[in-house]
């Protein structure tokens, strides 16, 4: 592998990871407020379909992204209403919506299969793109990819540096205490579930308009939602760590293409399932790390490393607040 190939590799990692970054950031926001939106896999597909159809019909990419985001938000709204206000199991509602949104996408999107639609054009940033290596990797992408990069910082800043972010985290950690401080945990949870859904919807739009352009059955984004959900755990509910996980995952995905060239006899479908055993091992490792942090017989350097990768779930994650 020579230098330009390596540059190309990293550039495609940044581009390919963009939708996964957005989806895991969205889910991090939702879960930080105490709600699990398990419908990610279906949400991404439905918003990918809606975004593609909207962009195709109106020939406007902006409208495509907007309608994709709105579809993601609408599914999140259903998850929120059912789990927060109707007291149903978050997992049950999310799982049903995963399957239903996917099937709805296949059904409604059927006439738009394999059509040539609009695609997001590349937008190299002048001057910055000239920087060796980093210029190509970071500044020779398209607008939504820049957006995904910026959002990592924005979400981190919002969650940890603003009063609103503190309120968001408080309803995920201790809703009773935030209620005592005059915050309505239910309203706030619903709001941030929808916000998370908007980002997930954008992730879907990014798939059908940029990363894997077009619509079809299968679209190619199948399974990504589950990966994003696992990345939230991998990131220990920290947006920056979750995003790092997304880049690591995209890197392995790109490497999978090379592996495929080395073992041509194995069908490509087998490689497509490779991320999932990896997901299990990662979760196993994270759980082990969480158990070991604080153990006296572990060296301080290991301790530091364990602390770095493990993080605790919001204390009230998945627990309904109030009964009526």
């Amino acid at each position: 592998m020579n230098e330009s190939e390596i540059t190309l590799l990293f550039s495609s990692v940044v581009a390919g990871a963009a939708p996964i970054v957005l989806a895991s950031l969205g889910e991090t926001v939702t879960e930080k407020s105490g709600v699990i939106n398990l419908s990610l896999d279906g949400s991404i597909l439905l918003s990918a379909m809606v975004a593609f159809v909207a962009a195709y019909e109106t020939n406007s990419l902006a409208l495509g992204f907007l309608s994709g985001a709105v579809s993601g938000a609408l599914i999140a709204l259903i998850v929120g209403l059912f789990s927060i206000y109707l007291n149903r199991s978050q997992v049950a509602v999310g799982f049903v919506l995963t399957l239903m949104a996917r099937d709805l996408a296949y059904f409604l999107g059927n006439p738009y299969s394999r059509l040539q639609g609009p695609q997001v054009p590349p937008l190299p940033i002048p001057v910055l793109e000239k920087i060796p290596f980093f210029g190509t990797v970071l500044f020779n992408q398209n607008l939504p990819v820049y957006f995904s990069l910026i959002m990592i910082g924005v979400i981190w800043w919002f969650l940890y540096k603003t009063p609103a972010g503190l309120e968001l985290r408080s309803v995920g950690e201790h809703p009773e205490a935030s209620y005592a401080r005059g915050i309505d945990p239910k309203k706030l949870r619903l709001f941030y579930t929808i916000c998370g859904g908007l980002l997930v919807g954008l992730a879907g739009a990014l798939f059908s308009l940029s990363a894997k352009p077009g619509w079809g059955r299968p679209q190619g984004a199948e399974g990504t939602g589950w990966i994003a959900l696992a990345l939230v755990i991998f990131g220990g509910w920290h947006p920056v760590k979750a995003a790092c996980g997304a880049y690591l995952f995209a890197f392995l995905q790109v490497m999978g293409i090379y592996f495929q060239n080395w073992f041509p006899s194995i069908p490509s479908q087998v490689f497509q399932t490779a991320p999932f055993p990896l997901m299990i091992f990662t979760l196993l490792f994270i759980s082990y790390a969480q158990k070991k942090t604080g153990d006296a017989d572990v060296s301080s350097r290991t301790q530091f490393f364990l602390k770095l990768i493990s993080g605790n779930a919001p204390a009230a994650l998945g627990k309904p607040y109030g009964n009526t």
Partner: peptide, 21 residues
Amino acid sequence: DSSLSGVIQGALVLTALAVQA
């Protein structure tokens, strides 16, 4: 697309959950 069945099945479960609530 035959996936309409999945849409109907999902809608049934969601509606039943709402009615139950």
